[in-house]
Design a binder for these strands. Structure first.
Lengths: 257, 257
DNA sequence: CGCATAATTGATTCAGCTCAAACCGAGTGG
DNA sequence: CCACTCGGTTTGAGCTGAATCAATTATGCG
């Protein structure tokens, strides 16, 4: 694998990515290693490679396979299907999320493209060591199972959102959740471009723009990049019946937006 | 668990389900047991319970947890979110599919309701033995992982379908796939009521009805319950760009529609 | 500063929903 | 055997949420 080569010839890299040195100690505490003994964890960590992607560059393209278990370490990754000049977002992965684990594990062609929306660091665990550890320690398989379960739930929420909420409701709910996730870290911020948000929420950029006005009239403002919850109760009411109490799947080690 | 009780007091059952005696030999060949040694397979099989549901009855309701790993043995199960008099279908499970495995394994409240659309037989593997076997034989965890991966892919396809195809295209694609899946088994048939199909495809029953006419004008007819592919090329062209070559995830042990 | 990209705004169109009425086939009971 | 009912499906008319197209106006960024 030339990724390993990249790592050691530090500084070199493909057109889209650049090798970086992963912080092994920080990685060790990642939920994917929960309940895993040190021996196996070390086996995985010593085989891993770090890659950095600039905003806008592709990590995988739809139809391609993905070698090795990818882990989003920093940044935001958009999973989307790109058709011509249109783009259909599925989900946004953030730090600590596994990136297309199913695709990586079963060697299938990816159904969607993965693209960095901000500067993004990805850790790649080599397939050989993943397979080896999976066959020896069931904690790893369990952790991945839990994560994919969370991904499935997120996807189902997305489906329900698309078919039982309006564009405005989806937007309001998303901003509200975004604000909650950043609670205590100063003013909550929209970390991505509006057009990517539109794609994620299944609406056009123009509609997003108009809906921002409607949502603002309901106590939820976006000034510049900062989200201002002016009238929480009103905003929540505007979101309509929430098909899913809970909002995200952090209990299942999913941090996606 | 009163399910076990149900099994042994054969004939009794809850209002919605009736205990049945599972065919253990047939079950043993289910993909969930692939690569599993006989000892563990027997451990699981000997703890299992069979339930039969009549068309229309609920297997789980949204918000409820699900005890034990459920397996659809016969029939069709609709996963849908029910809100008031409206219903939002997510997917249709058929024979051999796991039913909400993520919900069962992690004890989460289900996000959707599961309801039998036809007479349905479900096999339930008791949580205790599932946990035990999962911790000892990693084949089981792997098999479940594979299945959930397939479920995730199906969900993503659904999301893409909803946002990049029209109602007519979704309908045509679905019927075409249904016909292909039944190839060689005589005339292909629509196994469910139209209103459930509409829900599954994210449209109203009225729209489905109208779209059937449009689709018929494109070489794909539904007369009564039988699907007639009159002009395949035309029908396929009508479906528009297929975001996903392949169509289903049978390679990942998913048989859902 | 100036160019390219992103975001807004307006006007228009259209797919799909809603509501309401007609229709149809399968039971059911007189 | 027929009338009646009842759920499901179809048809029609009208409405509306959101997309599209086109034209500005902001916002970076080199």
């Amino acid at each position: 694998m030339d990724r390993a080569t990249d790592l050691h010839s530090a500084g070199e890299g493909s057109a889209e990515s650049r090798a970086i040195v992963p912080d092994l100690h920080e990685l060790r505490s990642h939920p994917i290693f929960d309940g895993l003994d040190d021996e196996h964890a070390t086996r995985l960590l010593s085989s891993c490679v770090g890659l950095q992607y600039r905003a806008g560059s592709y990590i995988v393209r739809q139809g391609e396979p993905l070698e090795g278990l990818h882990l989003v370490h920093r940044g935001l990754v958009d999973l989307a299907y790109v058709a011509g000049d249109h783009e259909f977002g599925v989900i946004l992965l953030s730090a600590k999320d596994l990136l297309l684990p199913a695709t990586a594990l079963f060697g299938e062609a990816s159904i969607v493209s993965a693209r960095a929306l901000t500067t993004t660091k990805v850790i790649v665990l080599e397939p050989a060591s993943v397979d080896e550890v999976m066959s020896q320690a069931q904690a790893l398989a369990n952790n991945i199972l839990k994560t994919i379960s969370g991904h499935w739930r997120m996807a189902v929420r997305n489906i329900l959102d698309l078919s039982c909420r309006t564009a405005g409701q989806r937007l309001a709910a998303f901003l509200l959740r975004l604000a909650d996730l950043q609670a205590g870290a100063g003013a909550p911020i929209l970390p991505i471009a509006k057009r990517h948000l539109a794609s994620r929420l299944g609406m056009s950029a123009e509609t997003l723009s108009r809906m921002l006005q409607v949502v603002a009239e309901n106590g939820l403002h976006l000034r510049g990049r900062t989200i201002i919850v002016h009238d929480r109760a009103r905003a929540e009411a505007f979101c309509g019946p929430d098909p899913y109490p809970g909002g995200d799947e952090r209990a299942l080690n999913v941090f996606a937006l």
